[in-house]
Amino acid sequence: MQLPPFEYIRPESLAEGLQALAEHGDKIAIMSGGSDLLINMKFRLDGPEYLLSLNGLPELQLIEELDDGSLRIGAGCKLTELANNALIKERYPALQAAIFSVGSRHVRNMGTIGGNICLDTRCWYTNQSETWRDTRDGCFKTDSEQCHVIKTTTKCHALSSTDSGPMLIALDASVVLASQAGERVVPVREFYQDDGLDHTVLEPGEVLVAVIVPPPRGRAVFAKLAQREGLDFAAGSFAAAVSGSNEKLDSVCLVMGSVAPEPRVMEQAGKILMDAGLTDESIDAAAGAARLSLDEVTNLFTPPGYKKRLIRALVKDALTELRDQAVRG
């Protein structure tokens, strides 16, 4: 498979990049590692006239500790670099696990955290070659008002597939978005929206320049279901962060990945834990609630009921791990 032609823009500075973005409107695409974007271009899902490469921009490579103890990670940092970063390993082991679980070593050597956070949504019908797609009617992502995943819907149900996204939400992180108009800071939780076609609040002309992770408050865990280890996208992922004791939690944030067009915050399941702490019963109940809160998404590999079962098992195991972390100290 070959790439379609485009004009390549390699800015010397972020400002120059933002200038190019402003100039070319919707004709330009942003590339970081390219490990997702280039495949979509080969599939002719994206066909930008201009390609803005952020690779090597020094502004995006920094990892720095802020005064309040937060960690600011430049969007251009490669996933391998972050997975090996001593500070991340020590302070945010669950984030390290999420980053480490992305694709293969090869992919992490190329992919960046910015690209991972912005990763396009995916689905069986659309992430295929153009000739493959020609055998069917189009969909929201191509040229028609329908979704093959959920036939009765009025929006695109392609799945958010980022592994870092759910974890960053659980850790209450924010992203820094820059445009020629200046910078804004958006909590990751508000960065995503429940529409496969338009899954983030990024505006044209905006670049994600960094992610800010606040100082760790309690314990966190990341778990991922994938048929093959060290390569596959998640069939479902789960990120959780809690503070307080197992008996009485002070905060809870539970997030599922790869189940909806956005990372899904599990409010109901979270409430169960807030009320009852982390016990065998509450973990069971929370896993059950997580299962019930999922949309009915057809998944070619598994009958619909099975994916929900998997999710329940995943949530249960991960929450048990989270509880035992406190016991182990």
Partner: peptide, 28 residues
């Protein structure tokens, strides 16, 4: 596969890291 998932095109980059030459633009 030219889509990053089979690894037969692996070469080593500047730091010796394994990269997929099918997903790397030559100009980069």
């Amino acid at each position: 596969c030219t889509a990053g998932s089979c690894g037969v095109c692996t070469v080593n980059g500047e730091q010796g890291e394994a990269i997929l030459s099918c997903l790397a633009l030559a100009v980069e």
